[in-house]
């Protein structure tokens, strides 16, 4: 088994859904996702959204801070899962994406922990 990180690009938290009912429904769906993930054993860390308080330190030590203009390169949140291989991890990402509804999930394998490579 290997560990993978999901990096959520763009708006993946479904925060744009406005009505309280929709929000409650969304919350419930995420709760179920989390419980299933823990039960089935693939969800190692539900992670966290990454707030708008952000900055990028560049090689010349210049800093772009505040809400980042190039929203495309900003990561909105992360999750850590365990899967047999990257294909299986992508299947889990699809399950997560169904809830997020928009944006994109980048799937990346951890380097250090992959004992059997």
């Amino acid at each position: 088994m290997s560990r993978f990180m999901f990096l959520q690009h763009g708006d993946c938290q479904g925060q744009t859904k406005s009505t309280p009912e929709q929000q409650a429904e969304g919350m419930k769906a995420w709760q179920a996702w989390m419980e299933d993930g823990k039960k089935e054993g693939w969800l190692l860390d539900p992670g966290s959204p990454l707030g708008s308080e952000a900055a990028i330190v560049r090689p010349d030590l210049s800093v772009t801070d505040g809400p980042l203009v190039e929203a495309k390169e900003v990561v909105g949140g992360y999750t850590i899962v365990e899967a047999e291989n990257i294909d299986a991890a992508c299947e889990l990402a699809k399950r997560t994406m169904k809830l997020a509804g928009s944006g994109r999930i980048e799937v990346r394998e951890f380097a250090c922990f992959g004992e059997e490579e």
């Binding site: 990257i86 992508c90 990402a93 944006g103 999930i105 980048e106 990346r108 394998e109 250090c112």
Partner: peptide, 11 residues
């Protein structure tokens, strides 16, 4: 570190 191989799942 994250391995360079990267896949994306879109909406």
């Amino acid at each position: 570190a994250l391995k360079p191989e990267s896949r994306s799942v879109d909406a």
